[in-house]
């Protein structure tokens, strides 16, 4: 399938993990679920380590604690929408929802 240039160039967003328990099982689950809702390829990078954002096991291997900066890269037609949704999840929803932050 032919992809336009626009679709093959990764869109990038840096986010900071704000919730006190970090990216534990439940946030990682929510992140991977959200990532799986888009067709774009989603990758998460922490300190040079790059993992598949659609895999909960991969996201858990980041052990991202509170204050960690994560770089999210999305490649594909809905990359921008995907980035917005994932950034909101990390920086807003997880930071404010206490029920999600229960490990």
């Amino acid at each position: 399938m032919e992809e336009s240039n626009l679709d093959t160039q990764a869109k990038v967003r840096e986010v900071v993990v704000r919730n006190s328990h970090g990216l534990h099982a439940r946030p990682a689950d929510l992140f991977a679920r959200q990532a799986n809702r888009c067709t774009a390829k989603i990758e998460v990078i922490k300190e040079g380590v790059r993992v598949d954002g659609k895999s909960i096991l991969d996201v858990l291997t980041l052990a991202a604690e509170q204050g960690t900066v994560l770089r999210i890269e999305a490649t594909g037609p809905d990359a921008q929408v995907a980035l917005e949704a994932l950034a909101k999840l990390i920086e807003v929803d997880l930071a404010s929802e206490e029920t999600i932050d229960q490990p």
Partner: peptide
């Protein structure tokens, strides 16, 4: 089972488990 004030250890245990299980 983790102590309430040690989220980092819990995260690192999950990291270890998920990394090995890949």
């Amino acid at each position: 089972i983790s102590p309430p004030d040690r989220p980092g250890d819990h995260l690192r245990a999950l990291e270890n488990i998920s990394r090995q299980l890949r």
